[in-house]
Amino acid sequence: MMLAGPAALATVGVVASKSAVRSALCLVFNFFILAFLYFSLSMEMIGITQIMVYAGAIMVLFMFVIMLLNPKLIDEKKDYKLPIGLLFGLALFMLLGSQILPKLMTANVPAMEYEVGSPKLVGEALFTTYVFPFEVVSLLLLVGVVGSVFLAKRRTP
């Protein structure tokens, strides 16, 4: 519960801050706290992967692109998008909340140690039951790498 507040604040910070670097930093902070939440759910393998993949690789990539492009601050025009977006978001939150939360009010996550998040079990599941999706995802990553290399290449005539 103590972690959820900062996480929510950081979430707002991602959307609300003016400069892209600030919102990227808020997002890194948010991912960090999410990793701690995963630890509190005793999913330590997933939590550390979260820090490694999101905070360590993806967000550094974001930072790299932000600094490479260094776009001038796009002046956020005060147009119809802001109120409509907020209204829409509020409606979505109310809708989801009214449907989901009442059912879960009584449910507690028991604070017990359990081993589902340990690297041993995750690895076993990944290479037995889920070996086909795993291979497909690795293929997807390969395609992503090739695609980004192709996109980023300067085409010299």
Binding site: V28, I48, I51, M52, A55, G56, A57, V60, M63
Partner: peptide
């Protein structure tokens, strides 16, 4: 994980 945070 921690050493990858050093980039920031």
């Amino acid at each position: 994980a921690i050493s990858s945070l050093g980039a920031y």
